[in-house]
């Protein structure tokens, strides 16, 4: 019997299952012509508030829907239901991030063909969601003016996996002496060339620019949104 240790090459991604499923989801989304946008941020940045605002404004132009991830409650879905678009809660239990399989399960019973734009709100967390692809076309990372301008430097990985940054609660910028220049510089340091929007879900400031951005994506993607 051979008792010498031998090395067997594996070269397999630990998150291969998630990546494979995310790829399948992306194919499904593309076939149905739905543009999928995920939102990531730390807890309390205002993902749900921004999402509620976007759903309310965007529904005038597109057929929108949202999946919202939360650890324990369905408060977010209840809030978002006020925007009168299809919303489904994903309760993760103790899991601190969404995975592709949770998205797949939540989509059961929905006809993607009837949607133009689907939002996925991740669990409030700037660490774990960075490792899990959800099949989204666009990942938006949110940063609120109350969090400190150096957040991108503290969590470079998540900022790096995102495509667009949105600075929220801009109506409070003066009160918290938000240093806009530093925040932008820090975002650019960890993700050069990243597009940045500044919005207030409360006052509506910056929402037109955000909507215009989605219109341009629409033009780039042809029939999609």
């Amino acid at each position: 019997m051979n008792t010498q240790p031998r090395l067997i090459e594996v070269r397999q991604n630990v998150l291969k299952q998630n990546d494979l499923l995310a790829r399948e989801l992306r194919v499904r989304f593309q076939a149905a012509g739905v543009y999928v946008v995920s939102l990531v941020s730390s807890p309390g940045t205002g993902k749900t508030a921004l999402l509620e605002k976007m759903l309310t404004i965007f529904r005038e132009e597109w057929r929108v829907a949202a999946l919202v991830g939360d650890l324990a409650t369905d408060n977010d879905a209840a809030r978002l239901a006020r925007s009168q678009v299809p919303v489904k809660q994903i309760t993760t239990g103790t899991v601190c991030h969404l995975e592709a399989t949770m998205v797949e399960r939540a989509l059961e019973g929905w006809n993607l063909e009837e949607l133009d734009l689907l939002f996925i709100e991740n669990v409030g967390n700037l660490v774990c969601p960075s490792s899990y692809n959800l099949g989204e076309d666009l990942r938006i990372v949110l940063l609120s003016v109350t969090e400190g301008e150096d957040k991108p430097l503290k969590y470079p990985t998540i900022f790096n996996t995102a495509d667009v940054a949105v600075i929220t609660k801009i109506d409070l910028a003066g009160a918290v002496e938000f240093d806009e220049h530093a925040a932008h510089a820090n975002i650019q340091a960890v993700r050069p060339g990243m597009e940045i929007f500044q919005v207030s879900a409360k006052t509506g400031e910056g929402m037109d620019e955000l909507k215009q951005f989605f219109r341009m994506r629409n033009a780039e993607c042809g029939v999609r949104i």
Binding site: R6, L7, E9, R11, N13, R191, P192, G193
Partner: peptide
């Protein structure tokens, strides 16, 4: 020069197994 183009550093990969017997 600023660059967002990552070549490596995102790996979480089982490279090999060492087996005996």
């Amino acid at each position: 020069t600023p660059t967002p183009q990552i070549m490596q550093g995102k790996e979480l990969e089982v490279a090999a197994l060492e087996i005996e017997g």
